[in-house]
Every structure is written in C-alpha cells, then in structure tokens.
Design a protein around this nucleic acid. Structure first.
Lengths: 237, 237
DNA sequence: ATCGCCCCGTGATCAGGATCACAAATAGCC
DNA sequence: GGCTATTTGTGATCCTGATCACGGGGCGAT
C-alpha cells in the first residue's frame, strides 16, 4: 500500500483501529461492510480543500486521520473558523442530507485520510440501513450543539480575553486526553483570531498579557497552562 | 371546545388547516393519525415557558399557533435570542433526540397552542414510521442552518448597524409573505438587542439613525421599509 | 548563504459602542 | 380615565479593541 505524505492508508473500515470511538464508524458489521464498498478513500496534504462553501454538495467525507478546519467567509474576506474537525468526524453531512450548498469550507490543516461517500450512495445506504439514519440524526444533533456553543460564546461574550480563555480551556479539556496542561499549538495567531472573532494583533497581545499574568507559558510550540483556576474564572466571568 | 386566551383549539392534526405547510405535520395519513394519538394539546399565554435551558428533555413541542422566542443566557444575566419560532416549528427536537439538556429556553411571545410529544412516545413513533425519521433529519438540518447563520452574522459582522440591517431585511423577506415592506413589530428594543448582540440603547439609536437616513419609517408598531436597496448594501458591507 | 514569504510582536491612534443616568412616552390594568 | 410598570429616547463619559504601521525572526526554496 502506498503511503503518500508519509501516511498509512486505512483501506478497510472493518479493520480500522479507531472504529469503536467513531460515532459513524462503529456500526453493525453488515452496515459497515456495505459502507466499505460504497466509500472511496483518498489522502490529502496540508491545506487541501475537501469542499468549499457554496458548492453543491457532492457527498460526505469521513475523516479517518488528520485534522481539518471548517470555516466560512464574508464577501470582504473576513473569516470565522467554526470547528476544528478530528478523526471520526463526518464532514458535509447536513449539506448533503438537505441538498443545500456546503455551508462551510473544509480545509486540511494536518494531512490525513478521508473516505468519501457520494450523496446518492449515502441516501441509498441510509434507506437500506435504518439504524444508520439514527446515527446521522445523532451526528446532526452533535453538529447543532457545537454550532450552538459557537453562538453562545460569540453572542454572550463580548470580550476577546474571555473567549480566548475559553478556547484555551477547551484545548486543555480535549476529549479522551486526560486534561493535559500541555498542548501543542497547531494554529497560527491568525487562525486563533478567526476562532474567537477578533484580530491577529489582539491574539498576539492576549498571549503576552496571559504570559505576564502567569496564566500560561510557551515552550516553542507547546503551550503550558500555569493557572487553570484563574483561566476558568475569566472564562465564566 | 373551550377557547382560552381567545384562541381556537386545533384538536385534530388531520384537520389542521396549516398541515401542508408544516414540515413535521405534512405526513402520510397513517403516521399523522398515530401522531394525533400520542400528542397532548395545550394552549399557552404570553410569556409562558415551554421549557428552560438546562432541563432534562421531556419531549418535543410542535407549535401550532402563536410565536415563541428561543434564548440562552449566561451566568451574568446576558441573553441571546437565537430564534423566533413560528407555527409549524418543532421545539426541543435536538435535545430530545440526543437526550441532552435543552440548550435553550422557549418562551411564548404570542399566545398560542402547542402539541407535546413525550420523548418515549416520539422515539417509538420514529421507529415505527421510518419516513418521519427523515423529516426529523431534515428539521435538524434546518435548525443547524439557522444556528449557522447566527454564527455567521455574529462572527463575521462586528457592527451592530450591519446586523440590524440584516435583521430588518430578514423580517421583510419573511417566508410565504411576499416580501412585505411593512412589518408589525412584536419585539421590544431589548429583545431586538438580544437578537443582534448589542444593547437596548444602541437599538434605540439605530432606529433613530435609520429613520433620519430615510431607510425606514415607523407608524405605531408598524415598520415600513423605505429604502431596501440601501439596507441591503449596509447588510452586505 | 541569501532571498522571499509568512508569521509574530508591539506602538500609536481612533472610533464605535457599552455603560450610566434620567426623562418622556406608552401600554396595560383596574 | 387615571395609575403604575414597562418601554423608549438621548445625552455624557469612558474604554476596549480595530486599524495602521513597521521591524524582527523563522523557515523553506533555490
């Protein structure tokens, strides 16, 4: 098996090591077998676009490895990142289900593999396998909750510092990862700014301030949280 | 049939005059009949709470008549209104499906009737009637899109005036209603502020400015849009 | 090594809203 | 019809973060 971009390919969903943790992948064998037949697999380099905001939905992408950022932009070039997707996420689901244009752009920020399922194949598949439709509804609910959290933080929180604190805590409470106080930074200040609705400069200043206040520390690209309690107080202020 | 709060009760979904326009109500007769059996009907006065953010989901409400506002609040009492729900909307769906706490508070702002379906009954119903599960997925996708729009406007738009213009245009393009240039105002400035993430005072000033600029006009509680083109330019600026 | 490109840090300025504080107006309500 | 409670208009002040500007640093290509 070729390994472009230095990655191993997971060709068979049934043999996928992460199958169990992934909502959409942890299916009855029969369904998964069928899924395995209708999917096509590809590996993407960094900054590859899986799909672009406004395109007619071609189908869904199941992210197997790597990370992607989901973003939306305004006419004037301002951008918001709505989510950093990780392995196991299903991208483009709501657009594909409802047959409306993709509402976000999905761009790889870490190279990885994604399985693609065309809209037609997916719809057929869902009709055949009712139990999967429930998964779809679950995933949609999840997406909704995430979007919803976004609204809460953007709407209820007018200070960038508060949102910044929230973001840092979100990273440190990363799921599965036992509350690490160290996080590898993978986003540029610009991208962080796009996540919390502020500017690059402000993010830069926030890092400075937070360092000065002993809330955090930077070792190269590793972020160390020094005073979690204080961050939590800021975040919920 | 009693008519509390001056409203007629729609007791039978099959005979509902608005059945066709409502995504969740326009079902095959067999399914609707069953739905009719498992629902319970109630009429709510203004400012009645259907459910409150954080509560365990008891089930869903199908709004038959009237309007409700969906909102979420922070610890410090700041509030965002995420949506004004109209007849035909299904409230509490994602929370009920995923069995997570209601993520918003639903409060009637115009008295009306709602049919309630318990979580258990709904889940049974969905299993029996697969075609309805598709409706649910559709409705969830819809909700997602709405939430998503919220993020876009809150995140990409930092000026209240822009968001205000957007809101006005949203009203004037109200669905089904052939682009009326007149809209009956039903929200207080405070509530409008909560929709566009600003303060009551700013909304007041925005109305003044927009009137001065001949963009709109007020006749009592009726809003008349005077210069739609200009509003559109502001909204997409 | 050198160039060029993208990131990052930080200063100076500036404006738009948040906030506070009243007064006027309106809407319900008995 | 009058009375209270809510809603609205508007002024004054203040302050945060957006914007502009520029220099330094890292890193990959050639």
């Amino acid at each position: 098996m070729r390994a472009p971009y230095g990655l191993n390919i997971l060709d068979n969903c049934l043999a996928c090591p992460m199958r169990e943790e992934h909502l959409f992948c942890n299916l009855p064998v029969a369904a998964l077998q069928r899924l395995n037949e209708i999917k096509s697999t590809a590996v993407y380099p960094k900054s590859a676009m899986l799909f672009i905001e406004g395109q007619q939905p071609r189908g869904v992408f199941v992210l197997c490895t790597g990370k992607a950022k989901l973003s939306t932009s305004s006419a004037e070039g301002k951008t918001v990142i709505t989510k950093i997707s990780e392995a196991g996420d299903v991208l483009g689901l709501s657009a594909t289900i409802s047959n409306r244009p993709y509402e976000v752009t999905a761009e790889m920020i870490e190279p990885g593999q994604a399985n693609f399922i065309t809209r037609d194949a997916l719809l057929h598949f869902l009709r055949e396998h009712g139990e999967v439709a429930v998964r779809v509804a679950e995933q949609l609910s999840r997406n909704y909750y995430t979007a919803y959290e976004g609204i809460r933080t953007l709407g209820l929180t007018n200070s960038p510092s508060e949102r910044f604190a929230k973001l840092l805590l979100g990273w440190s409470n990363s799921p599965g990862n036992g509350d690490p106080l160290q996080v590898k930074l993978k986003l540029t200040h610009e991208e962080i700014a796009e996540m919390i609705g502020t500017t690059r400069e402000t993010v830069s200043r926030l890092f400075s301030q937070f360092k000065k206040k002993q809330l955090l520390q930077l070792k190269g690209a590793t972020l160390i949280i020094r005073n979690k309690a204080a961050l939590e107080k800021m975040a919920s202020s």
